[in-house]
Design a protein around this nucleic acid. Structure first.
Length: 868
RNA sequence: GCGCCCGUAGCCCAACCGGUAGCAGGCAGGUCACUUAAAAUGACCCCAGUGCGGGUUCGAAUCCCGCCGGGCGCACCA
C-alpha cells in the first residue's frame, strides 16, 4: 500500500485545525441571526493545572460532538471555553518555587489551550475567559456588591470549617461526609471566626422547589441537591424554664420538632452542650458534671461525635422546664446527640416516638409516655423501640383521637394562639461561607472603616486588583494581610484611614457566573448585557463531572436566581439539560500485601500480573486515573500515536457517556482500525471515480429499478441516519451512535462495489456526514478527496422513510409463547392475513398437531403466537 | 439505617411501548486466505439465555416482590 492511500492522522489533523482556524469555522454567529435557533453547548471549564487528562478529553469531546451536530442541524451554536483560574495550586507553586501565581497560571493556560486545540474541538476561542484576569474578576467583584446591596452578603462570627493543610476556611459543601476537605483531603477543624457569607438559605425553598423543573437533569443530581438542602417542616415550641421553687424564671427553651403531635409525650428536653443557655441554667450541684461532660464532647472530633452507632450520652443540668402542652415539669439535659448547628440546638425528648430519644431514655431511666397508637389498634407497650409512624393521639388532652397528621396542624395552631410556639421550617443547607484566607483569589471589594463600618468599594473603582510582587512564605496567614501598603487605604465614605478586606473569595464564586459571561465576554460596562445573556441562555446542554452535583451546580443556580431578582437576567435556571459524564479509569495494579501500586509498564505479563520485585500476585482493577496509582494515560501520547479522531471515537464508543469508562489500549487500536477501514473505503471509491459533485446531480433511480444489494445498501444508509440522529438527540448515546457507523461501514463494504453511482455516492456522503461530528478531521479530509469543503457546514442528512421499507419481513411463529419458526411474509400484510399465513404454515401443523388454537395473538411485523 | 442506580458471552457494550437475546458494534481468542515470512488486510468460526428465587402475562433482560453482589448520595438533622 502506498503512503498516499494510508490513513495517517498526523499528516492531516494539524492541517485541518489550521485551516479551520484561518476560516473562522468555529466563530459564534449572532444568536438570533439567520433565523436559526441559538444553541448553547457548554463544558465545565477546567482548572488550568497545565496538564490535560483523559477526564477533560471525555468532557470536551462529548460537548464538541453536540455542538457540531447542532451546527449541522442549522442552529447558531455558542461553544466556548475558559479557565477556572484562581486556586491554591498556583499559590502553592509560588510558595514552593517562588514563581508568580499569575505567570504560572498563564503559562498553564497556554499549555492546556494548545493541548485542547489538538483535539479538534470546535470552540470559539475568541470568547475565552480566565477568572484570574482582572477584566473578569472585576465583574465577580461587581456581582459581589450586588449581593451586598441586596442584603445577601454579610459578615458573622461563626464556627466554621478550617482546613489545616490549605490554611483557610471552607464552606459546608466543600467538606465531605467524612469531614475531609474536598480539595486537600485534610480532616477539617472547627474554628470560631468572623467570615463573609452569602445568604443562600434565603433561596433554599426556590432551589428545592424548582428542582422538578429540571427535567433535563439526571434524577440523582436532583436528589442529591434535595438531600443537601434538607428541608424539614415542623414547629418551634417553647418550654418555659422553672425555678427551684416552681415559679417561671421568664426564660424558655425553644426546641425544633417535626413532630409537634407528640408533645404530650415529651418527658425531658435536651440541649446541645454548646447551647448558650447551658452555663446559665446549670445548677450548682450539677456544675461539675456538666463541665466535665462539655469538656469530653469538645475533645471529640465531629466524626466521633456524629457516628451513628455510638451510644448516646448526656447529663442533667439540674434545671427543669414546663411542658407547655400539659404543664408537666420535666428535666433539662445536655447530650452529645443534639447538634448546636441544627434547628434551635435543643430538642424535646419523646422516647415513645423517636428512636434516638428512646435509646437515650432507656439508658438514663427517663419516663416513656406513649401518645400515638397505630390506627385501629389498641394501646400497646413498647418493647423493640419507638413507634415513629403516624397514628392516632392518646394521653393528649383535647387532641385525643386525632390522627397525627391533623394533630400536627392543630397543636401548632394552639401553640401559636397561646404564644408557646409557631410553625417553622428548617434546612440542612447553611449559608455559603465565601471568604478565604489566601492570596490567589478574587479580592472581596470592601473596606472596613472604624467609623463607617463595612464600606463597599465604589463600582467605578473596580477592580480591586491583586498586588503583584508579593512575598510568599506560606506562613503567618494570607500574604494580603501581611501587605500593609495594600490594605491600608482611606475610607471612601469619610476619608479616614481604613483597612481593605484581605480575604479573597471562594473560587466557586468565580465559577458561579462564567457561563453568563461567555454570552458577552468583551463587555466593559457590565458583566454581560441583559440582551446577550437572555438570547443565549439557559445553557441548552451542560456537560461535566458528577462531583459538582452539589457544589458548583447549586451555587450557579443560586447566582442565577439572585441575578434574576436583581433584573440582570430573565430566566430562573441556568442549565436546561445536564449530562454528568463518568470517570475515565485506568488499569491499576496493586500489591495486596504491601499496598503499593505498580506501574503497568513494570508488569511483565498482564495475564499473570506479578510484583516485579517480590513476585507476589497483584490485584488488578480499574480506577480513576491518577499519578499516584501509575494508571494514567496521557492524551498527548494517544494523539501522537493514533490521532485525535481515534481518541475521540474511542472515548465516545467505549461506554455510555454517564458511565465510568475503562481505558483499554487494545480497544483504542480497534478504533483506529475502524477509521482506517473508512479511509480505505473512501479511497477505493475515489479510485473508482466517485465524487460528491456527481451525487448531487445524479438523481436516484426509482426504487423498482434498484438491485437487491442497492436496496439493502440504501436501507442501511437510512437506518444509520435515523439511529444516529436518535442517539444524538434524546439520551445522547454516543456509544451506540458509533456502533451504527460501524454497521453502516460494514454494509458499505459489502455492497458499495456493486452499487450504481448514485446509490454509492449517497452512501459515501452519508457515512462521512454522520462521522463528521465524531471524527472531524478524517471526515473533512475524505470529504475534500471526494471533491468539496467543508463537511462541517453541510446540513445533517435526513432519513428517507421509503428506503426503510421492506417487501417482505420475517414473521416469528410462536406456539404457546415459544419460538417455533420463521415465515417470510409481505411487509404490509394485515392481522387477519398474518393469522391465516401462520395457521397455514408447516410450523403450525407440526406443533399444533391438528388442534385449533384457542387463542391467537398477532403483532404485525413481528410475530404470531398460537396458544392451543 | 434511609434513598437512588447497576448486575446480559472471556471483557466492554446492544436490545423501541414486554414480542426471535447479538445480520447492533468492538476487544480478546481460533481457523483459513493473501505473503518467502511477518505485519497489515480479508473471510469464517467460537462464546451468554440475561446475578439468585418467586410472581404477573399468550409471551419477561424489560413489570412486581424478596434475596445476593457492586456503585453512589444522605446519615444522631430532631
Amino acid at each position: 500500500m502506498s503512503d498516499a492511500s494510508r490513513y495517517q492522522p498526523q499528516a492531516i489533523e494539524e492541517r485541518w485545525q489550521q485551516h479551520w482556524q484561518a476560516q473562522g469555522a468555529d466563530a459564534t454567529p449572532e444568536p438570533q441571526g439567520r433565523a436559526a435557533q441559538p444553541f448553547y453547548a457548554l463544558s465545565m471549564f477546567p482548572y488550568p493545572s497545565g496538564n490535560l487528562h483523559m477526564g477533560h478529553v471525555r468532557n470536551y469531546v462529548i460537548t464538541d460532538v453536540i455542538a457540531r451536530v447542532q451546527r449541522m442541524r442549522g442552529c447558531n451554536v455558542l461553544h466556548p471555553m475558559g479557565w477556572d483560574a484562581f486556586g491554591l495550586p498556583a499559590e502553592n507553586a509560588a510558595i514552593e518555587r517562588g514563581v508568580d501565581p499569575g505567570d504560572w497560571t498563564d503559562r498553564n493556560i497556554a499549555a492546556m489551550r494548545a493541548q485542547l486545540q489538538r483535539l479538534g474541538l470546535s470552540i470559539d476561542w475568541s470568547r475565552e475567559v480566565a477568572t484570574c484576569h482582572s477584566d473578569y474578576y472585576r465583574w465577580t467583584q461587581w456581582l459581589f456588591l450586588q449581593f451586598l446591596e441586596a442584603g445577601l452578603a454579610y459578615q458573622k462570627e461563626a464556627t466554621v470549617n478550617w482546613d489545616p493543610i490549605d490554611q483557610t476556611v471552607l464552606a459546608n459543601e466543600q467538606v465531605n461526609s467524612e469531614g475531609r476537605s474536598w480539595r486537600s483531603g485534610a480532616l477539617v477543624e472547627k474554628r470560631k471566626l468572623r467570615q463573609w457569607f452569602l445568604k443562600i438559605t434565603a433561596y433554599a425553598d426556590q432551589l428545592l422547589d424548582d428542582l422538578p423543573k429540571l427535567e433535563g437533569w439526571p434524577e440523582r443530581v436532583r436528589t442529591m441537591q434535595a438531600n443537601w438542602i434538607g428541608r424539614s417542616t415542623g414547629a418551634e415550641l417553647s418550654f418555659p424554664v422553672v425555678a427551684a421553687d416552681g415559679s417561671d424564671t421568664g426564660e424558655a427553651i425553644t426546641v425544633f420538632t417535626t413532630r409537634p403531635d407528640t408533645i404530650f409525650g415529651a418527658s425531658y428536653v435536651v440541649l446541645a452542650p454548646e447551647h448558650p443557655l447551658v452555663a446559665e441554667l446549670t445548677t450548682a450541684e450539677q456544675a461539675i458534671h456538666v463541665e466535665a461532660f462539655c469538656d469530653l464532647v469538645a475533645r471529640q472530633s465531629e466524626q466521633e461525635r456524629t457516628a451513628d452507632d455510638k451510644p448516646k450520652r448526656g447529663v442533667p443540668i439540674g434545671a427543669r422546664v414546663r411542658n407547655p402542652a400539659n404543664g408537666e415539669l420535666i428535666p433539662l439535659w445536655i447530650a452529645d446527640y443534639v447538634l448546636a448547628e441544627y434547628g434551635t440546638g435543643a430538642v424535646m425528648g419523646v422516647p415513645a416516638h423517636d428512636q434516638r430519644d428512646f435509646v437515650f431514655a432507656r439508658q438514663y431511666e427517663l419516663p416513656v409516655c406513649q401518645v400515638i397508637i397505630p390506627e385501629g389498634s389498641d394501646e400497646h407497650a413498647y418493647e423493640g423501640g419507638a413507634w415513629t409512624e403516624p397514628g392516632v393521639l392518646i394521653h393528649s388532652g383535647r387532641f385525643d383521637g386525632l390522627p397525627s397528621g391533623e394533630a400536627k396542624a392543630a397543636i401548632t395552631a394552639a401553640a401559636e394562639a397561646e404564644g408557646w410556639g409557631r410553625a417553622r421550617t428548617t434546612y440542612r443547607l447553611r449559608d455559603w461561607l465565601i471568604s478565604r484566607q489566601r492570596y490567589w483569589g478574587c479580592p472581596i471589594p470592601v473596606i472596613q472603616c472604624d467609623s463607617c463600618g463595612v464600606v463597599p468599594v465604589p463600582a467605578d473603582q473596580l477592580p480591586v486588583e491583586l498586588p503583584r510582587d508579593v512575598a510568599f512564605s506560606g506562613k503567618g496567614g494570607s500574604p494580603l494581610a501581611q501587605l500593609e501598603s495594600w490594605w491600608r487605604v482611606d475610607c471612601p465614605c469619610c476619608g479616614r484611614p481604613a483597612r481593605r478586606e484581605t480575604d479573597t473569595m471562594d473560587t466557586f464564586m468565580c465559577s458561579s457566573w462564567y457561563f453568563l459571561r461567555y454570552s458577552d465576554p468583551q463587555n466593559t460596562a457590565l458583566p454581560f448585557s441583559r440582551e446577550a445573556v437572555d438570547s443565549w441562555l439557559p445553557v441548552d446542554q451542560y456537560v461535566g463531572g458528577i462531583e459538582h452535583a452539589i457544589l458548583h451546580l447549586l451555587y450557579a443556580r443560586f447566582f442565577t436566581k439572585v441575578l434574576r431578582d436583581r433584573g440582570l437576567l430573565g430566566f430562573d435556571e441556568p442549565f436546561a439539560r445536564l449530562l454528568t459524564q463518568g470517570m475515565v479509569q485506568g488499569i491499576t495494579y496493586k500489591n495486596p500485601h504491601s499496598g503499593k501500586y505498580i506501574a503497568p509498564a513494570d508488569v511483565a505479563d498482564p495475564s499473570d500480573p506479578r510484583d516485579p520485585v517480590t513476585g507476589e500476585v497483584l490485584e488488578v482493577f480499574y480506577e480513576k486515573m491518577s499519578k499516584s496509582k501509575y494508571n494514567g494515560v496521557d492524551p498527548a501520547v494517544v494523539i501522537d500515536k493514533y490521532g485525535a479522531d481515534t481518541a475521540r471515537m474511542f472515548i465516545l464508543f467505549k461506554a455510555p457517556p454517564e458511565k465510568d469508562l475503562e481505558w483499554d489500549d487494545a480497544d483504542v487500536e480497534g478504533q483506529f482500525r475502524f477509521l482506517q477501514r473508512i479511509w480505505r473505503l473512501v479511497d477505493g471509491a475515489v479510485e473508482r471515480g466517485l465524487g460528491l459533485a456527481d451525487s448531487a446531480e445524479l438523481s436516484l433511480p426509482e426504487a423498482t429499478a434498484l438491485s437487491p444489494g442497492e436496496k439493502e445498501l440504501r436501507r442501511a444508509v437510512h437506518t444509520a441516519i435515523r439511529s444516529v440522529s436518535e442517539d444524538l438527540e434524546g439520551e445522547l448515546q454516543f456509544n451506540t451512535a458509533v456502533a451504527e457507523l460501524m454497521k453502516l461501514s460494514n454494509a458499505m463494504g459489502e455492497h458499495l462495489a456493486a452499487a450504481s453511482e448514485p446509490v454509492a455516492c449517497e452512501g459515501l456522503r452519508t457515512l462521512l456526514l454522520l462521522l463528521a461530528p465524531f471524527a472531524p478531521h478524517l471526515a473533512e479530509e475524505l470529504w475534500e478527496r471526494l471533491g468539496a469543503t467543508s463537511i462541517h457546514r453541510q446540513p445533517w442528512p435526513a432519513s428517507d422513510a421509503a428506503a426503510l421499507v421492506r417487501d417482505t419481513v420475517p414473521l416469528v411463529i410462536q406456539v404457546k409463547g415459544k419460538v417455533r419458526g420463521n415465515l417470510e411474509v409481505p411487509a404490509d400484510a394485515d392481522k387477519a392475513t398474518l393469522e391465516q399465513l401462520a395457521l397455514a404454515s408447516d410450523i403450525a401443523a407440526k406443533w399444533l398437531e391438528g388442534r385449533a388454537p384457542s387463542r391467537v395473538i398477532v403483532v404485525p411485523g413481528k410475530l404470531v403466537n398460537l396458544v392451543p
